[in-house]
Amino acid sequence: MSEENKENNDNPLNTGPISRRDFLKRGAVLTSGITAMVAALSPLKQLEDTFDMEEFVQKHYKELTPKEMEGVLKRIAKKVEKKYGTTPNVQDIKPQEGVEFSYALNLSRCIGCRRCVHACVDENNQSRSPEVQYIRVLKMPQGTMDMEKGDHHYNVKKVPEEGHFYMPVQCHQCEKPPCVKVCPVEATWQEPDGITVIDYDWCIGCRYCEAACPYWARRFNFSEPSIPKEKINPNMNYLSNRPRSKGVMEKCHFCLQRTREGKLPACLEVCPTGSRTFGNILDPESEISYILKNKRVFVLKEEAGTLPRFFYYFDK
């Protein structure tokens, strides 16, 4: 090695000519370093499935033009087809004129069989593992309305049990929803037919609404929802039962995809005791109006001032 080269090797910052050996060695370090860095970023590959540029730049639900909405629905359908292998019918059904939904539940008749809980999961494409359920059936000791005494983990052979009554609790679709008030990004709002909905693409997952709800009605997707492929319900709606992603809120929406088409909600149809009544409160001839006129109904946590659209009553 010449005197000049030796000098160059001593000073790594020297940009002068270097030996072939040094070039290869430094090159190897550099290449392996870059490779390691790129590899360190490899978890970002997983984002490919969840991150969607179109979704990222999508406007708020209320600002979407009908044409843009068409594109959005097509995109959702494509995504669902890719993930679950079924072609869904994704729609965006608008609320009907002169319709305001209300729900009533007869506590004397409810036997706590939890059919409603699972029919809801089946209809609304909720995650099975981890479990997301919109309805919580509280087992309450007779003689109290203290919800602190309610237990929804009861596991018995036969229901009803002696000395208890059962109180299913789900979203009450309040007229003054505290969850809507606290949303910092307006991802949740009340529709003209009384249903409080969530734009799952707009939700940032801050869970303020979950904390604000006095009925514990909101559920959060802590991890990527998993639904068996054969269990997917292809009848989907943008604001209701289309598959959600990790990190968004969801809750009962009175089976919007069914009820806006005139059908009854899934939890009502499956109830073997017929404890549930659903209908249009603006129609004086409807079943729900009959109950409000003839039964002694009450709402949960009236003092919260939320004006729920979900009524309970006792009636043997």
Binding site: R109, I111, G112, C113, R114, R115, V117, H118, S127, S129, P130, E131, V132, Q133, R136, H152, H153, Y154, N155, V156, K157, K158, V159, P160, R219, F222, P272, T273, G274
Partner: peptide, 23 residues
């Protein structure tokens, strides 16, 4: 369809599984 006319009281039935508690 729901009440047995000979014994009309609605009979106790098996409840669906309880929440798994991992949500």
């Amino acid at each position: 369809a729901c009440h047995n006319p000979h014994a009309p009281k609605f009979q106790p039935i098996e409840p669906a599984p309880a929440p798994a508690g991992n949500h």
